[in-house]
């Protein structure tokens, strides 16, 4: 049935058209400098992922600025329904990236918070325009390396088989699902396998994993099973929440031994490219 029969000449509700259509994704030319927003999970649990991101950005010829006053994007409070608390923490973040450089984030979920949820968070406040402008500067780090920096890598590692977990926020908020694949595709000794039900959530969801722990556990159990079934040597994720959840469940699940080797995509890539060895810059 040809769709043009249904398309009216004038949009029925004009104001809605913009809100409903998916905006075209546009990338800037490679800048001289970028800000890195580290995220709180990287800060406390996966600093090597952050360092790997920094090293990869510099390898691509971009200078990295890291404002020390950054803390957390505010997502934990936001998704728990504590809007005012989220807003105050988000406002603090928006005020410390003064220059007009892109802000790159080594996590789809924190990136998604800043890019897609800050505008809603500040709607109706005096900071709404600031939030809109700020959100336009947010990029997921892997995506930025691939599409803005045009990074090219040489694989210095042994042959290995890897399963990639793509997060819901990178898929549905940041629209960067393919970036990880493209980056890993440059590593000639890495065979990438896709697990079944790749688009299904791992069950993390922040406080959801604790509030509804039985449901969350059932979800991550299935995710571990699908990843395990790929017989990959390790799995990767560019989202620390998913990583913590899936790796934690795989470590507890005796049947999923191979997946104990889960790590952040950026850590893996930097190591393979010989930029980081034993957690130290080369």
């Amino acid at each position: 049935m040809p769709v043009h029969h249904f398309i009216p000449e004038e949009p029925l509700v004009e104001s809605l058209t913009d809100a409903l259509s998916t905006p075209l994704k546009l990338y800037p030319t490679k800048p001289e400098k970028v800000y890195v927003f580290g995220t709180c999970l990287v800060d406390l649990f996966y600093p090597e992922a952050g360092m790997s991101g920094v090293v990869l950005l510099e390898h691509a010829g971009v200078e990295v600025l890291f404002p020390q006053d950054q803390t957390c994007c505010g997502q934990p409070a936001y998704t728990s329904g504590y809007k005012e608390e989220a807003r105050l923490v988000a406002l603090a973040q928006m005020s410390i990236f003064g220059e007009d450089y892109p802000i790159v984030v080594p996590s789809g979920s924190c990136g998604g918070m800043m890019k897609t949820h800050y505008p809603r968070l500040f709607e109706g406040t005096e900071h709404h325009q600031q939030a809109l402008d700020f959100s336009e500067r947010i990029y997921e780090l892997t995506d930025f390396l691939v599409h803005v920096c045009d990074l090219s890598l040489e694989d210095k590692g042994e042959r290995t088989k890897i399963a990639l977990h793509t997060s819901c926020s990178s898929r549905r908020e940041m629209k960067t699902t393919d970036s990880g694949k493209l980056l890993l595709g440059q590593l000639k000794n890495v065979a990438l396998v896709e697990p079944k039900k790749v688009t299904e959530c791992c069950g993390f969801g922040g406080a959801f994993s604790v509030r509804h722990s039985e449901i969350s556990s059932a979800m991550v159990k299935d995710k571990v099973m699908h990843l395990s079934n790929t017989k990959a040597d390790a799995f990767l994720s560019s989202d620390c929440g998913c990583l913590m959840n899936i790796k934690g469940a795989a470590e507890k699940d005796k049947s999923a031994l191979t997946l104990r080797r889960g790590e952040h995509l950026l850590s893996f890539v930097a190591r393979r490219a010989g930029l980081i060895a034993d957690g130290v810059e080369v």
Partner: peptide
Amino acid sequence: TNKRTLPKMAKKSFHQQM
């Protein structure tokens, strides 16, 4: 931790390392 292990806290945070 009923169904998962906890990730290990870093000895040096990303902030400190940077």
